[in-house]
Nucleic acid binder design. Structure first.
Length: 237
DNA sequence: TCATTAACTGTCG
DNA sequence: CGACAGTTAATGA
């Protein structure tokens, strides 16, 4: 296990709000306070209901953010990759996380304590502004997601989930840049793994996607988009 | 190798 | 469309 702290100055995550502001001199002492956590695939590093332990950034890897329903069903709220923030709703008023987060791949995470974050945001307006922009985007995504869940059929929701994965992780050698279990896709789309399996195999029969074991890919994104085009929500969510 | 997990199929309410 | 039961394939201890 490698516990070495990742250094922001050599980090490649241009979308990270810390990295974007790393040139600000006030930031350096807070960066010195951060810690790096290495998570193995499948490891849960934010437990729903546990006390907030600050803010996490994905340095490298992939993470799912989840919320558990009353029946114990897991809902994947979003996926996060390099440069993205996790646990950002945990601070402010809330004392406890109301989401969970587990690594989908071996991942390294940067963690800033609550105190660190609060002082940073009070002291550096540019950082606060960037975070606010991020919140605004998140809220907008969340709103369109509500519409989706209300209006889309299961087939459309699964296609939408596939497009989300495609957008976020891209495709390499005809398959998506991340391998998710059918269960994870189901938890994201708000359905069951059996439904996902069935829809994936019919999509495969129709030639819209190809699968090989856990690997899924598409050769015709536009055809997939067309299926849910009436909903017009495929822009970004 | 055996045991556990994931993928898939069929059926029923 | 979801829930359940059951089979097969893949994975890993």
């Amino acid at each position: 296990m490698n516990y070495e702290k990742t250094i922001c100055s050599v980090c490649r995550n241009a979308s990270c709000i810390i990295k974007r502001n790393v040139h600000l001199s006030q930031l350096s002492r807070y960066i010195d306070q951060k810690s790096t956590i290495n998570c193995k695939k499948g490891q849960t590093f934010i437990i729903e209901g546990a006390p907030v332990q600050g803010l996490y950034f994905v340095n490298k890897g992939a993470v799912k953010v989840t919320k558990t329903g009353l029946n114990g069903k897991e809902q994947i709220v979003r996926l996060a990759k390099d440069g993205e923030i996790i646990g950002h709703r945990g601070f402010g008023a809330g004392q406890f996380y109301h989401i969970g987060a587990t690594a989908l791949e071996n991942s390294s995470l940067c963690n800033f304590s609550l105190d660190s974050m609060n002082q940073m945001l009070l002291e550096i307006p540019k950082l606060t502004y960037d975070l606010m922009t991020f919140y605004a985007e998140e809220l907008s995504r969340s709103e369109t997601k509500v519409k989706k869940f209300a209006q889309m059929t299961v087939r459309e929701k699964v296609i939408d989930a596939l497009l989300y994965i495609f957008r976020k992780f891209g495709q390499k050698d005809d398959f998506f840049g991340i391998q998710l279990s059918r269960k994870d896709i189901a938890d994201f789309a708000g359905t069951t793994d059996e439904q996902v399996i069935r829809i994936l195999s019919s999509l495969k029969k129709e030639g819209l996607i190809q699968t090989s074991g856990k690997k899924i890919g598409t050769k015709n994104v536009n055809l997939l988009r067309k299926e849910i085009s009436e909903h017009n929500y495929f822009i970004d969510s």
